[in-house]
Simulated scan of single mutants.
Amino acid sequence: MSQTLHRPTASNGASASRTPERVIPVVLDLGLSSPQKPVKTAEEGAAFLGLCGAMLRTTPGAPAGALRALEMLRAQGWRSAPVLAGQSAETLAQLLREAGYNGHALPLARRLKAMAAYLAETWEGTPEALRQAAGAQVPALRRLLRKIPGLGEAAVDSFCQDMQVIWIELYPFAEPRALRAARRLRLGLGQDAAALAGNCAPEELPRLAAALAQIERRDDYAVLTRRLSA
């Protein structure tokens, strides 16, 4: 059965003459409202902070300052499940209010505490134990992550996208919104994360995917087109 090729047009995100080298810097500038700090292998509690970051970013009504909230957790030294679980919900909610969560602060604080308590009681206080139990098998890892209280599918996607730089079995990974944006902008010859990964160094894929997801979430294609045409 023959397949009709769909040619890119300006109406679906970018003209055929715009190359990834031209599009990607604009995507990163538009899609990342604040610098996306890469996860560092040597950082204390990197995997646990990755879970916190995923929950912060995917909370309904999450502010652009989700990264600020994560930095505040770091500054407080709340880098492990037992330590975070030991904080009162109101103490944690106050930190989240200062980061901009306002009406969502207390429910989110309770979800973060429940997640931390579950890890502390069930998985030795660290997501690394889940990784070991999954045997480096991504489907098994995702099933275990979904059992964590308060961690939905979107948060699991966000976590996998961020952690692929140090949990190498996750590479390449891009959340569904990022892949939709990549297809619309013709970034790669295929329709999966491997095709998108061909546009950047491995350590840059989380930033690129996060920027694409944000553009898709906000439907910023018209703004992107104007910037590319300038």
Rank of each mutant, 00 (worst) to 15 (best):
Q132Y: 02
T58L: 10
V223G: 04
L151W: 00
R226T: 01
G13T: 09
T225H: 14
N102Q: 15
G100E: 05
A197L: 10
A116P: 07
G65T: 15
A47W: 01
M72S: 11
E203Q: 11
R79E: 15
R207N: 10
Q76K: 13
S17A: 15
E175N: 02
Y221A: 02
A230K: 15
A116N: 04
S11M: 13
L205Y: 01
F48V: 11
G50Q: 02
L228C: 11
R142F: 06
A62R: 04
P25L: 01
G31W: 00
H104E: 12
L96T: 11
R22D: 15
S17N: 11
G188H: 02
Q191S: 14
L112F: 08
S17M: 07
T19I: 04
G61V: 10
A230T: 14
D220S: 13
R142G: 09
G103P: 14
A133S: 07
L30M: 06
R97D: 15
P176N: 00
P63H: 05
F48M: 04
A211K: 06
A117V: 00
R79F: 08
L67R: 15
K113E: 12
L119H: 02
Y101S: 07
P107T: 00
P206V: 03
D157L: 01
K147M: 14
L108K: 02
G61L: 09
T9S: 13
T91I: 00
P35K: 03
T122V: 13
A230S: 14
Q87D: 05
G100P: 08
A69M: 04
S88D: 09
Y221V: 04
R68Q: 11
R131K: 11
R97K: 15
R57Q: 06
R111C: 04
M72V: 06
V26G: 13
G198V: 11
Y171D: 00
A213T: 05
A211P: 08
A209S: 06
G77Q: 09
R18D: 15
V27H: 10
D219P: 09
P127V: 03
N12K: 12
R79V: 15
R110E: 11
A89I: 01
A16T: 04
L187S: 00
A213S: 10
A133E: 13
L224A: 07
A182W: 00
N102P: 08
A154C: 07
E169L: 05
Q94D: 14
E169T: 06
V83W: 00
T4C: 10
G77M: 05
D219S: 14
A99R: 06
E175Q: 09
R207V: 01
S88L: 06
P25Q: 01
G61S: 03
T225Q: 15
N102K: 15
V23I: 14
T41S: 13
G152P: 01
A197F: 05
E21P: 04
P20C: 09
G65V: 01
L92Y: 03
D220P: 04
